[in-house]
Amino acid sequence: MSIEINKQKCVGCGKCRDVCPGTLIALDENKRAYIKYPRDCWGCTSCLKECPVQAIRFYLGADMGGTGSRMHTLKRGELLDWIIEFPDGGITTVTVDTKESNKY
């Protein structure tokens, strides 16, 4: 389980690097973010939520049953979309209202 960062999309703002609770993300010589220690990701998804251009995808490692799907987030006011892209091109979105409590 870890993340991948799309360097073409990355704008070099450094917000993902700043927020990572493990200090695992760095900026390369062109000021593009990359994950320096992919095996050390906790899977907290803090970086996804910080990224202003949706350049970061979260995935489950094959060792924990991952099948190649990728997840990212999109903020729409008080709504947070969690967008899952499946390997076959399918997409599913779960929308969380950040002002709504969990039911359980």
Binding site: T45, F58, G66, T67, G68, M71, L80, I84, V94, N102
Partner: peptide
Amino acid sequence: EQEQSLLKAYLNMAPSQTLHWAES
């Protein structure tokens, strides 16, 4: 309805589980 609530609840604390449910 319970299932939908669970998917959201896990996104608010352990997003891996929701992704696991969805992709498996």
